[in-house]
Design a protein around this nucleic acid. Structure first.
Lengths: 336, 336
DNA sequence: TTGAAAGCGCTAACAC
DNA sequence: GTGTTAGCGCTTTCAA
């Protein structure tokens, strides 16, 4: 440690400017001088102090990623993709977990610690509309998710309504008519749940099928257990259903478990559709048909948009970037 | 941005030292002065430049966590726990993904970027014994996992042999006698797989049951698909088994899927045991009996050990810290 | 092609 | 109690 430019300069018999030039591949350094400096660097095991460099340059080469919880598979897979993309761009990522707690999310937004990063990719869950003012435009932020629509920041997200509608239409096209929903949120205006519900209703409406509140199961937290609970509650009411649309994969998997336990066959008696295309949906029993909302594209675009914003200063007005989706057909909706 | 101590001092009509004193809760500041400074801070929206502070202090307040891949549930849950612990200690965490690639792991170890962090929690998968020399003792490192046993660094890990032995004994105690293994690695000397295999064999030996290579399935990568593949291959050979011990939960879940598909009942015909206690094991169908190797403790201990090492300088000799394990009984091994 | 020196924003001796 | 000032290690004009 503690080997500085000055030490290297001393050993090489040059000024620190020359050493700096060598390190930064500055062109105008005589071949012989360069060699001497490189020898000194190797001899001393010098490596530049990034903190000092950052202080000078005003950049840190790091971005922050704030998600509710890495132990939720969706966010784990999102984070994996974001880190991979950032890595490729030569940027490191520090990950914050907000626990979907509004107070913690505000803390991230106000960013006492933002000095350590050049920008933030932020996927809030608890934030309210009135918190938006907190998002200053000075610090580069890219928002993810559905929770915030009018922040003065770029927003990368998915086509929730269209994708949920397509998923529902897929089930309808199979002749399913009593399509239950698991994972609805009560009294929610914004957010993935309400958007996906809208897509579901649009599809029903277009097919002339009445909406039935009795087969809409609430699950506030989208954990596997809450999906299972909602399904169990619904079955206890002896409803008639021939399909289940889980508003995300996690609740869909929980619901599917309860369906199978209840003696129903999937997909023969009840088809099951998820949303998110988590890796594990490929390996559930049966494997789960789901909607790939374009997570890979979202990660890539979030990173590149943020880096452009960081590099470009106070560029254009906030943009909304929408990923393409795709239905991934698996066993849980196989025909016959 | 760009509001500095100097600006605040100007507005408050004091020197920067006084502002600094206020910010750092230095005791000797008159009440009135403090109030004036705080007003100025609020007015200007000042927040200290962490990079400058770091440069002065030589600390960054950040640590790095290097894992193979966050989209692997084990590492996602580990990372979640590490970040939570670090958070509580007021430290942020950079997450790096090495892809279990030796070259990338070496890169992390050599750490061109380590200047951004005060230390590293490192869970390698590809590293070889001869790479250990790379671990200098100047930079605080805490190792996780089984891959490296003699690094000059603290090592926090689990009781693989004992836990695997206990898991096997649990199955034996149920009267299972043909216990297959899924997830063995070929020709591996170090690593979780060989340790857990050792525990398995110890239990068999103690029970006087011969080891049978025909019911040991290899799965190099411990993905769900490789677990499923290994199980399928084994079943295709028409072997006689009454239990499966997956060397981790992921392969166990993949194997369980194939068992169920093959028409076998779990646990009636074949009991299934996993290892890791991933969240999802609670919600599989049937839920998976597994070994909790003490991941929460490992995360907590890794963070506290690293922070102690950072704070304490070149302290004691490398220590090995072992977590307690626990068998989590679920449906996949329920009796009768 | 290289050197001298200013300063990024902050902390902490050391004065007063 | 508060102000002055010297750096932390680096990059970068500006001269030489």
């Amino acid at each position: 440690m503690a080997v500085t430019l000055r030490d290297v300069a001393g050993v090489a018999g040059v000024s620190i400017k020359t050493v700096s030039n060598v390190i930064n591949d500055h062109p105008y350094v005589r071949q012989e001088t360069r060699a001497r400096v490189e020898a000194a660097i190797a001899e001393l095991g010098y490596s530049p102090n990034l903190t000092a460099r950052n202080l000078r340059s005003g950049r840190t080469g790091a971005i922050a990623l704030a998600v509710p919880d890495l132990s939720l598979p969706y966010f784990a897979e999102l984070a994996a993709a974001v880190i991979r993309e950032a890595e490729a761009a030569g940027v490191v990522v520090f990950v914050e977990q907000t626990g979907a707690d509004r107070a913690r999310e505000l803390e991230v937004l106000r960013g006492r610690r933002r000095g350590l990063t050049d920008g933030l990719i932020f996927s809030p869950l608890g934030l309210e509309a009135e918190d938006l003012a907190e998002v200053g435009s000075a610090y580069p932020v890219v928002m993810l998710g559905e929770r915030v629509f009018d922040a003065p920041a770029h927003h990368v997200t998915m086509r929730n309504v269209e994708a949920a509608r397509a998923a529902t239409e897929y089930l309808l096209a199979q002749g399913r008519r009593r399509i239950a929903v698991i994972g609805a949120h009560v009294d929610e205006e914004v957010g993935s749940a309400s958007l996906r519900m809208r897509g579901y209703r649009e599809a029903l409406d277009a097919a002339g099928i009445p909406y039935d509140d009795a087969i809409v199961g609430r699950a506030a937290l989208w954990h596997r257990s809450s999906g299972a609970d909602a399904m169990r509650e619904m079955l206890s009411r002896d409803v008639d259903i021939d399909a289940v649309f889980g508003l995300n994969d996690t609740v869909a998997l929980g619901a599917m478990r309860v369906l199978l336990r209840s003696g129903r066959r999937v997909p023969e008696d009840v088809a099951v559709m998820g949303f998110d295309a988590l890796n594990e949906t490929e390996f559930s029993i049966p494997s789960l048909t789901t909607v790939d909302p374009g997570r890979a594209w979202i990660a890539k675009t979030a990173v590149s948009t943020l880096l452009a914003r960081i590099a470009g200063g106070a560029d254009a007005a906030p943009r909304r970037l929408l990923a393409d989706f795709r239905i991934v057909e698996r066993e849980s909706t196989a025909r016959d």
